[in-house]
Computed example of a mutant assay.
Amino acid sequence: MLRKWILLIGGAALTSLILSFFFVNRASEDPMLARKILERAESGTTEISLSTLTDFDWEKASVYGPYTTVDVIEESLNVEFKGSINGIDFREDIFLLVFAKGNHAIKTVVLSRKVGNYYEKNGMLTPKNDLLIIKKLLKTTLYWSCHAPPPAAAADWAAFAQSIATTSDTRSGSISSSTIINW
């Protein structure tokens, strides 16, 4: 009987240890903070003081753009990152704001690119240097008429698409020649 109790207590301790490995010091997502930042950005604000919006202790933060990997986040913040990066490593429609305290990321905020791109004002964000910059995207709409003659060659479409992608405030490749050619 004593042996069963020892095995039961040992099993519970081992299970707790394994679960704590996955959940202790895990960065949690903060959708309320994301909503506050998005509301300010949509109202036209281009600089946001993060200290006025945060209700938790943090020492440093950084904002990461599309295609950022966990390795880049860990290296740039000098932290161990546990938590979700919400697919930022393969998505281009979001930025990820990561807050850290000590050697751990503590909070993440998913920022939609529908209002713009996000940057730090003067390098690494801290409670004293806390300005998040929002650069509004230029909205470029491409209209063409079905009655207009198509370009003579596919290369013309490719050059046209490239000139739009490089002269507007959009990511290169957001308009691809294959999208335009295959109409």
Rank of each mutant, 00 (worst) to 15 (best):
K82F: 03
G83A: 04
S84P: 00
I85M: 09
G87H: 11
D89L: 01
F90P: 03
R91N: 01
R91E: 00
R91F: 03
I94E: 06
I94V: 12
F95H: 14
F95T: 03
F95I: 01
L97P: 04
L97G: 03
V98C: 07
A100M: 05
K101Y: 01
A105Y: 13
V109I: 10
V110C: 09
V110P: 14
V110T: 15
V110F: 03
L111A: 06
S112D: 13
R113M: 04
R113Y: 00
K114I: 02
K114A: 03
V115W: 15
N117I: 03
Y118E: 06
Y119V: 05
Y119Q: 12
E120I: 02
E120P: 15
E120W: 10
K121E: 06
K121Y: 13
K121Q: 11
D130W: 09
L131G: 02
L132Y: 08
K136D: 00
K136F: 01
K136Q: 07
L137V: 06
L138K: 15
L138T: 12
L138E: 14
T140N: 09
T141P: 01
Y143F: 12
Y143Q: 12
S145K: 09
A153C: 06
A153S: 08
A154N: 07
A154G: 08
A155H: 08
D156F: 06
D156P: 00
A158Q: 06
A159M: 02
A159Q: 04
F160M: 13
A161Q: 09
A161K: 10
A161D: 07
Q162R: 15
Q162W: 10
S163V: 08
S163K: 14
I164Q: 05
T166R: 14
T167M: 09
T167R: 14
S168I: 03
S168D: 01
T170Q: 12
T170I: 11
R171F: 11
S172M: 11
S172N: 10
G173R: 14
